[in-house]
Design a protein around this nucleic acid. Structure first.
Length: 836
DNA sequence: GAGCACTGC
């Protein structure tokens, strides 16, 4: 027996091993996974035997047979070489070698990759292993497996043990489910809730976190309908986020003892796990909104639960307005609005003073501390507090979660903490500092879930992603700076700006609550109690007041809501915002002069993208460039997270970016070239990594593109055979959608002036491919304008004639001429006119 | 020549 070593040693050892070991290990893990699958198959067969289809049974048998053969072959290999290695491993190995030998910095890349696998290994512990099929080199194993492997090279036995343990846990869980369900705080209120539901059509339910409302209420409602003999009624439960819909559906299906997709299912953008048998359906709010296009009266639906309504997402707000109308004639339809306590009265008032039910939650107490005086610099205050908590609470366990506003701040804070750590040396206990924001690649994000070694404390520096989207267990201390970045859209200028703003009291409480998930905790607020009560709003502005409403208005009009001014918005958007959206839709040809939806508008509303993008697609087909424009549009949407650029890799990233430059189409051309090259490598994750592109983003682009292509076909657009992109056709297609986003170079050759939109001075964003002075075109279109300063992102050079040709409602020849000749550049800020 | 929080169809 080799001497027992600790995890850190083993992992560093692991890092240094050759890739051959990894390949062997990967084989072993494939095998282990197969074994696990087969065991799961068997359990599934036992539990759901009668519900399984023939195809599923056949697949299960196939897996079982593959496992048997593999085990047999392993035995032979094992006796010959003392090490199991399959034929496929050898092929993989030579492939990998060929691939790697082409690369210059061959060694460092392998190391990089190995390090990443190690971190993944750590991350996979306690998490269900997810496997990316696109990435051939991607595999997941847990720390336990890794350690055992390094210690004695024997993977099968510990793996078997782990499987057995897994199995035992599952069995125990099944036994516990009914106990757990009954121990949830909400169970005590079941009778009251059902009585209220019976008596009233709508109900506001305020339940604190940990009460079990999202998983239990739909089940109670199903029981309610069953007792009344209404077996066909469906219960819908909306969620603002996809992950929530998936995990809730999975859990409830398990509680219910059915397979996911049978009685309990979920629907999200790219996935529909429901059948005609489904009675409890979790879906994202946006999905339900889109459903109104095809079935506006919600047939078969017995109850709609609007979960997390206090978040006031755009989709939930619109849904409330639509449902408020439906309940008038569908008197059998029950509505349950679930919200945080703070907003309950507002919701009740909106729903005609309906009753409010309160259910307490089950979280641990969190002690909150306020700053005694205002902090001038919240960033340095956050760092100081982190150290105070770490050193002051030496003996107490629990990680620290710090809320900051953005990537930049997080990187600065991380650097400072690392430096102080070195200075302090042994005088403080060990601390690991982990960043967390959404642009961080997924495997980096996973690191935050790895429990720290005994005696080591984790400090997680996070944006507000940790407020609702990601839950980290083991956090006992929250440090709240009281700020976050918010997107503000101004109708007047058409500018989006991302500004640092104080968070609302509701968010602050949500942040504090993150300290009390696994035990009592504390929250250190870096602002005074006075500021909390007086300077911070109770809740943040609902999304509907902050965004461009074009697609929402087109959707409403397509559903048949014509009178927008009398639509029962819980918070009405500014009339100017509605007016300017109507104007844009009219210019796009989506609405006629009476404000009715045109044939074009109907097509545009079918596509889940901004109307101006959809218009570009429509026109692109006429010019025979649909498939290229499809690619570009899918890329624009995700362009923000294409490259992953940590500060120290900046030069490499820039070099990689330059390789994708195509003359003539600006950034759009590079998007095409990136996507097409990735496609040529058969969507290879390794290729993406070599070019500093994020595989996650590219996969999303591919998903979006595929969905859009299908929808295009549904509305009668056929993509052409892909050939070389026709530059003129592409430019014209985009001009007909993005005409309002045109800009012309100023005399200085540096800045630009927007043609309409208030005629402001704008610049090409430095991250653009045509930012270099020599590459700058005279005229261009931008797809996004950010302030301050006003940078145009994603730009496309065009010819000025296209504007008058393709948007005659919007531009007169004189507009263009004026800009071309007059030094003073038009009329200055003013009304964006529509020519009559 | 500078930097983007977070969702969703």
């Amino acid at each position: 027996m080799p001497p027992k070593r600790n995890a850190t040693e083993d992992l560093s050892d692991l890092r240094q091993r050759s890739r051959f070991d990894y390949l062997a290990k990967r084989e072993a893990l494939k095998l282990a996974e197969l074994q696990k699958d087969v065991e799961e198959d068997e359990r599934e067969r036992e539990r759901f035997g009668d519900q399984l289809s023939k195809r599923e049974l056949k697949e299960m048998d196939q897996r079982k047979e593959t496992l048997r053969l593999t085990l047999e072959r392993n035995q032979i290999d094992d006796t010959n070489s003392g090490f199991f290695m399959l034929d496929s491993t050898l092929t993989d190995k030579s492939e990998l070698l060929n691939k790697r030998n082409k690369k210059e910095n061959y060694k460092s890349e392998v190391q990089l990759w190995e390090e990443e696998q190690t971190s993944k290994a750590k991350a996979a512990q306690g998490q269900r292993a997810v496997r990316e099929t696109e990435d051939d080199y991607d595999f997941v194993f847990d720390e336990q497996t890794a350690i055992n492997f390094v210690s004695d090279g024997n993977i099968l036995d510990p793996e078997k043990q782990r499987l057995q343990q897994h199995l035992d846990e599952a069995e125990k869980r099944a036994k516990d489910i009914s106990d757990v369900r009954q121990s949830l705080p909400i169970h005590a209120y079941k009778k009251e809730i059902l009585e209220a539901v019976d008596q009233f059509q709508t109900l506001v339910l305020t339940a604190e976190t940990g009460s079990g409302k999202s998983s239990q209420i739909p089940q109670y409602m199903l029981e309610y309908f069953r007792q009344r003999g209404e077996h066909e009624k469906v219960v819908l439960c909306t969620q603002p986020r996809r992950v929530a819909a998936i995990s809730l559906a999975t859990r409830v299906a398990e509680e219910h003892g059915t397979r996911l997709g049978n009685e309990v299912g979920y629907t999200i953008r790219f996935e529909d796990k429901t059948t005609e048998k489904t009675r409890i359906k979790y879906l994202t709010d946006g999905t339900l909104l889109r459903m109104f296009l095809t079935q506006p009266d919600l047939p078969d639906v017995g109850c709609v639960i609007l979960d997390e309504a206090h978040e006031r997402t755009l989709a939930t707000d619109i849904l409330m307005g639509l449902l408020l109308d439906i309940v008038k004639f569908r008197t059998d339809l029950k509505i349950i609005v679930s919200s945080a306590t703070l907003d309950a009265q507002g919701f009740s008032k909106y729903w005609n003073d309906c009753p409010v039910l309160f259910v307490p939650g089950r979280t641990y107490p969190v002690t909150t501390y306020f700053a005694s005086q205002p902090e001038a610099n919240y960033l340095s205050a956050a760092i100081t507090t982190t150290w105070q908590v770490h050193i002051g609470a030496q003996d107490s366990k629990g990680d620290i979660l710090v809320f900051l506003t953005g990537q930049d701040e997080i990187e600065t804070a991380q650097q400072s903490i690392e430096e102080t750590k070195i200075k302090l040396g042994n005088r403080a206990k060990e601390l690991i500092c982990l960043p967390l924001y959404s642009a961080l690649p997924p495997d980096e994000q996973q690191k935050i879930f790895v429990p720290a070694a005994p005696g080591v404390r984790k400090v997680i520096l996070a944006t507000n992603i940790a407020e609702t989207s990601l839950t980290i267990d083991g956090v006992a201390h929250v440090i709240d700076t009281g700020y976050s970045k918010e997107n503000l859209y101004s109708e007047a200028t058409g500018l989006d700006s991302l500004v640092v703003n104080p968070v609302s009291r509701a968010s602050a409480n949500q942040r504090a609550g993150r300290a009390g998930r696994t035990g009592p905790g504390s929250c250190y607020r870096l602002y005074t109690q006075h500021a909390f009560m007086n300077d911070m709003p109770a809740t943040s502005l609902p999304e509907i007041t902050r965004v461009n409403l074009c697609s929402t208005i087109l959707l409403l009009k397509s559903i048949g809501v014509n009178d927008l001014l009398n639509f029962p918005f819980m918070t009405p958007p500014a009339p100017e915002a509605i007016a300017s959206s109507l104007e844009t839709l009219y210019c796009l040809g989506a609405l006629d002069s009476k404000g009715a939806v045109t044939k074009v508008g109907r097509s545009l509303s079918e596509l889940p993208i901004e109307p101006k993008m959809a218009k570009a697609l429509l026109v692109a087909e006429k010019f025979g460039s649909l498939s290229h424009v499809l690619t570009i549009i899918s890329m624009i949407g995700e362009s923000g997270a294409l490259f992953f650029a940590p500060k120290d890799k900046k030069l490499h990233v820039d070099a990689a970016k330059r390789r994708f430059y195509i003359k003539g189409l600006g950034d759009y051309g590079s998007y095409l070239s990136i996507y097409n090259q990735w496609k040529e490598t058969e969507y290879d994750g390794m290729w993406a990594k070599e070019n500093f592109l994020q595989a996650k983003t590219l996969n999303r682009v591919r998903n979006v593109r595929e969905q859009l292509e299908k929808l295009c076909e549904r509305i009668g657009l056929t993509p052409e055979d892909e050939g070389e992109p026709d530059h003129v056709a592409i430019k014209k297609a985009f001009t007909s959608g993005y005409f309002a986003n045109a800009a012309r170079m100023s005399r200085d050759g540096q800045s630009y002036r927007t043609v309409k939109s208030g005629n402001q001075t704008v610049w090409i964003h430095p991250s653009s491919w045509i930012h270099e002075p020599t590459e700058r075109p005279k005229w261009l279109l931008y797809s996004e304008l950010a302030s301050l300063p006003e940078f145009m992102r994603s730009v496309l050079p065009i010819e000025p004639e296209y504007l008058t040709e393709l948007a005659p409602f919007y531009f007169k020849d004189s507009d263009i001429e004026k800009l071309g000749t007059n030094k003073k550049m038009g009329k200055g800020p003013g009304k964006v006119g529509v020519d009559k």
